[in-house]
Write a protein that binds this DNA or RNA. Structure first.
Lengths: 222, 222
DNA sequence: TAAGATTAAGGAGGTAGTCTCCGATTTGTC
DNA sequence: GACAAATCGGAGACTACCTCCTTAATCTTA
């Protein structure tokens, strides 16, 4: 049996909090401490549009695309882009958040369908590989996030490391994975293979082979 | 027995050709077609100094250091630096050339000392790992070189891939390495582990573990 | 719905890095 | 020592990142 699940990597609702908290300070008419305004509509519109355009750019030209160019194609000034997403990592995190749902779904599907714990871990690593290969050059910021602590990507990565740990623990319990391996390293190894793929634009063969090497590296026979 | 060796990755002598070819066109006194001049001394001096300073910078700040900053500390203009080394890769290649001798020596030592072909391959991969970790951020240009064909680093890499292939072939003959692995992928996997190490400035534990995963990945028991 | 308050947009511009071109300088040769 | 060729130096064109401050859009209230 397998049992990772229970705590997903937490898809934060981005911006909640407006409405439902009026009337608290209605006693005084002080101009300060008034009820917070509704978020301006153009802000949300811009945010959404930036994300669309960034997805395009990153897909076509990799995760290191020029942010100014993204702003220009989105028809906004650079200041607006940076106000919404102070760093490249923040922008990437927002884009990956959209993929979070899919990855979580794959995780749940694996848990539900797979009875072989080693096979389950393998499928999960496959899913992670696809995720980390969303954009060319994505492995680099992901790797950095894993050691930076204070990155918008850090939380996301940490969640997936935890999930990896759970799949791995199950496989280890069944004697199907090397006992000395840790989830963090498997996660890093997935990033590393995705990084290798990023080189060639078409060294798929090498990436495949590397995955196989890693597979036979963490696995135990039977 | 092991038998890689024979053809080293070819340490090009950089600039030969001066002297020993005079008198050929001595028949006419035509101002054209005269004997080529000796290389100017300041050129060699500058080249050497650039290499010293670049070694410093790359060691301290990684392989992505500012080239203009290197030129400035070397007391020359950027144009001079770019004339000597048109690209960052050319500069890196020149620096790595200095390490070529050491790596070749390690290869020869392994060939001479090691009777266990799997152990020999392992030691060679260790040597490569040290080589690829000479500067922070070095794995990236090395990876690119492996698929660019027309990079000053490409030849160097290709030579080491060949050496890896030879050690690997020996191990495979002895049934000590997975038969489906190729030298290119092992080389890439070394780069990948070096790349992982580059993240943390100190995630040595993960890098070690990744090496172990790879080790048990390509190896066959007994 | 118009005035006032506030939030957000826009974009000029400071900083930094890459790389090139050409006038000035150094060096080798006779 | 003078000439010619090779090399240097660095201004500056280009691109990218990111910030600040002025202007414009939107929300609120009457």
């Amino acid at each position: 049996m397998i049992e990772p699940a229970a705590d997903a990597p937490a898809t934060a609702p981005a911006d909640a909090a407006h409405g439902a908290d009026a009337g608290i300070n209605a006693t005084t008419k002080a101009p300060t401490a008034s009820r917070p305004r509704k978020t301006r509509s153009d802000k949300q519109r811009n945010r959404a549009h930036i994300l669309e355009v960034a997805e395009e750019f990153f897909t076509e030209q990799g995760a290191a695309s020029s942010l100014d160019a993204i702003a220009k194609r989105a028809g906004i000034g650079p200041g607006t882009l940076y106000r919404h997403f102070p760093t490249r990592e923040a922008l990437l995190a927002a884009l990956l958040e959209a993929r979070d749902e899919e990855l979580t779904a794959r995780r749940d599907a694996i848990v539900a369908e797979e009875t072989d714990s080693a096979r389950a871990l393998e499928r999960w690593l496959d899913a992670l590989d696809t995720w980390a290969s969303a954009f060319n050059g994505l492995p680099d910021p992901l790797r950095d996030a894993l050691t930076t602590e204070t990155s918008p990507l850090a939380m996301t990565c940490q969640g997936y490391v935890t999930t990896t740990d759970q799949f791995l623990a199950a496989a280890q319990r069944d004697g199907r994975a090397q006992p000395w391996v840790r989830g963090r390293e498997l996660f890093l190894s997935v990033l590393a293979t995705a990084w290798v793929r990023g080189a060639a634009l078409a060294d798929e063969a090498s990436a495949q082979s590397l995955r196989a090497i890693l597979r036979s590296g963490w696995a135990l026979p039977d």
